[in-house]
Design a protein around this nucleic acid. Structure first.
Length: 116
DNA sequence: AGCTTGACCGACC
DNA sequence: TGGTCGGCCAAGC
């Protein structure tokens, strides 16, 4: 039983749980869908309490992978068949230039814009 | 009360 | 494609 979670944080995490596998939402999207707060507030919540939620489905608007957890996130994306953007062919056979998220295809609208 | 920082975003160049 | 700038909102010092 946890009541130590701020209401706002609880709502943010709730939305994060709603995101279907293979799809993502941006911090700004969640804030907008939620109708309050901003991207930074959502980001703070994820940073503090995101461990108990599918954090890899909450991404930045530019599709960059979460710094420090790139490989972790990438594994999830591969497992969920989340749309990824192909790495540049110019250096395809070299080291770890990780692919980026195809934010345009992976972006989830939040259930068609319908609240529960 | 003021300044800095942060899992951000969009516009510009 | 990538770097910079201003705007944004809450928390910390």
């Amino acid at each position: 039983m946890s009541a130590e979670l701020p209401e706002y944080a609880e709502r943010v995490l709730d939305v994060a749980e709603l995101i279907p596998p293979g799809r993502v939402m941006t911090y700004g999207d969640i804030a907008e869908w939620l109708g309050e707060g901003g991207p930074r507030q959502v980001g703070r919540v994820m940073a503090l309490y995101g461990g108990a939620a599918p954090w890899w489905r909450v991404v930045r608007a530019d599709g960059a992978l979460l710094p420090g957890h790139e490989l972790r996130a990438l594994e999830h994306y591969r497992a969920e068949a989340t749309p990824l953007r192909d790495a540049p062919r110019a250096a395809r056979d070299t080291d770890g230039h990780l692919p980026r998220l195809d934010i345009r295809r992976a972006r989830w609208d939040g259930g068609g814009g319908a609240h529960v």
